[in-house]
Design a protein around this nucleic acid. Sequence first.
DNA 1: TCGCAGGTAGAAC
DNA 2: GTTCTACCTGCG
Length: 304
Amino acid sequence: MIVETPIDLELTQLSGQTSQPPWYEVDGTFSNVVDVKGNSVIFNVKQSGDFLDFTYSGDASDKQAIDKLSYIFDLDFDLDKFYRYLGNHAELAEIPEFCSGLRLFLADDPFECIISSICSANNSIKRWTKSICQIKENWGDRFGNYYTFPKSNDLLKVYLDDEGEFNSSDIQDISMCTNNLKSCGVGYRAPYMRRASEMFTDEIDLHEIFKMCYDEAFETILEVPGVGPKVADCILLYGFNFREAFPSDVWIKRIVSHLYFEGKDISVAKVREFGMEEFGKNAGYVQLYMFHYARMSGLMKKLK
DNA sequence: TCGCAGGTAGAAC
DNA sequence: GTTCTACCTGCG
């Protein structure tokens, strides 16, 4: 099937958004298993020019499949209109030429996004991505070559570390204990992930968060250990489609400071307030574009 | 080798 | 309220 829409699929896939690791890529075709109305459906997506060419296999109608694909890659967002918006602001005007076709890569599974985002804190894209892939392979369900992310009540049962696994099983040699969270390289974030699994199993309903206003959702998600303001905004943006979120980290701080405050040092908290106030419903996209603009244009090296 | 990587928790001003 | 510091781990 064909969807006609401007997008740079590879850029979108590899942009490090904490919704999920990139899909599995072979010769430009990106594939993964996705939930469609409770059924596991395998998608194969390829870009050719301004078209998105895709096939799917599993229990879903064409319309359901297109709707799902449109949600995950945010295909209904009007990029041209957004570029006009950027063009009308002097500070942002040259951004689009460096990341044309970049779109939000939204989470199919919000819980995966929560754990991915917790994992991303004080971490590199490469390492958190690897950790999440290992979690999927260890405890997710397999469909063909692809794995779902484990549900919170399943992740809850996973041992935290070697010692926990050793003490609770009949394994004789502790070096054989590799079926635990820390074995996935998540480090000190393991207990945060465990607690998050508890909370989203019997304290917080994921579906309720979609219905909340931004402020309520932000406060709710901040209750999860390992989730501070930056991670909370990533979860709300990539996991729950709150487009007014403006995830603010050291890089966004440097970029905003450079573009708007003559390089003056301002707190990340102030940058977040500024971004939300200044960009409104475009905040999420502006943040996404700012980060990649800085990467692609060489600004990042200059600011470091 | 040692510092850093798209921050957070906990404690101290 | 704002500022300081330790922190798993893999990679250059």
